Computed example of a mutant assay.
Amino acid sequence: MGTVHALPARTPAPTVREAAGTYLATIADAGTRRTYGVVLDRLAAHYGPDAHLAALADPDRLAAWFTGQWGDSAARTWNTRMNALHSATGYWRQQGWLVDDPTVRLRMRPTPADRDRALSRDQVDALLGDKAPALRDRVLWHLLYETAARAEEALRLDVRDLDMPARTARTRRKGGARDVIAWQTGTARLLPRLLAGRRSGPVFLTDRRARPSVAVADVDPTTGRARLSYRRAAELFEEHTVRVLGERATLHQLRHSALTHAAEDGASTPMLMALSGHTSVRSLAKYARPSAESLARWQAERDPARR
C-alpha cells in the first residue's frame, strides 16, 4: 500500500488592502510610493476591508470603478493612476495572487506635449515677495527656486547639512547620490531667522510636537517637533498660489521655473546639470526649454522693424 503524504496547507490570498501594502513596500522612491498609494487606498476602500484579491477578477467592475474615479481627469492624471494600478496588478500576478490581468478594459490616453509648466518671472516674484505666509514656508519656497532642488531633497535637510557662510548644503539626490545645492540672497536672509540658533535636527519642522511613532532622526531635539512632510508642504504652497496667482501651482514648478529661467539667462548645459542634479542631458531638456514669454522677448529684440 502506498504512503499517504499530507499536502501543505494552502496560503490564503491576501486581502486587497494587504496586497496593496505589500506592493507599496517594494517601492523605494517616496514620491512614487505616495502617488501609487492614492490609487491603491481608494481601490481597497471600494472593495471593502475583507475583500480578497479574487474580487478583482471581474475586469468590467474594475474598469467601471476606475473610470468613476478618474474618468473626468486630464490625460496625464489618468495615465499616472493607470500606471499605479497596472504596476500593482502585475506584481500581484507575479506572486501568484492573480491569474489574469484585471486591467484589460483600461487603456492609456494620448497626452499632448506640455510646454508651459514653468512659472513666469513675475509670478515667481509675486509668490516669493508675499510676506504673509509663515517664515518656514517662505524659506522653503525661496530655497526651492534658488537651488532648483526637488522638494524632497530640501525637506530632508538637517541643520548639520548646512554651510551657512558658503550658502550651500549637502543633500541626497533622487536615486541616493550625495550632492551639494547652493542658494542666493533671498534664502540667506531668511534662513538664520528660521533656525534661531538651532544646531541639529531637521531644517523644516511641523507646527506641533512629534508623535511618539516618529523616527528620532525626524524630530528636532530642541523643540520636539517633527520634520515637515512633503504632503503638508505641497498643500500650503498650492493654497498660497491660488490666493496670490488665482490658480494652482505645485512645488515642482519652482524647480522647473528655476531651470527654465537659468537656461534663458544663458547657463551652460554643464551648469544646468549641476544645478538640477540630472545625470542625463535628455532628462534635463524638458526643464531647460525657454518659455513662451522668453521666446517673444527674444523675437522682439531681433525684429528688423525695430532698427
Rank of each mutant, 00 (worst) to 15 (best):
F204H: 03
W298D: 14
V203Y: 00
Y23W: 15
H240C: 06
P270D: 09
P14R: 05
A217G: 11
V104L: 12
S291P: 04
A45H: 12
A63M: 08
T241I: 05
D218S: 13
R211Q: 15
R282T: 11
P290A: 07
R81I: 03
G31C: 02
D122F: 05
A20Q: 01
L140F: 05
K131M: 11
S120G: 13
A84L: 09
T147V: 06
L272K: 00
L98P: 00
A84G: 07
Y36I: 03
R121K: 13
A169V: 02
S257N: 09
R172N: 01
R115A: 13
R81N: 01
T241M: 06
R302I: 07
Y287I: 06
R231E: 14
R121M: 12
T187N: 04
A45C: 07
T35A: 15
V216Q: 14
R76T: 12
N83Y: 03
P133A: 13
V180L: 02
R209P: 00
M82D: 00
A249W: 04
A134M: 03
R107M: 13
G266A: 12
M273F: 02
L119H: 02
A28Q: 12
W298F: 13
Y36N: 04
W78L: 02
T32Q: 10
Y230H: 15
L135V: 09
R232W: 11
G21T: 03
P59E: 07
G277A: 03
S291D: 05
D137W: 10
R255T: 02
R34V: 00
A258C: 11
R199W: 10
A57N: 14
D207R: 15
M164T: 09
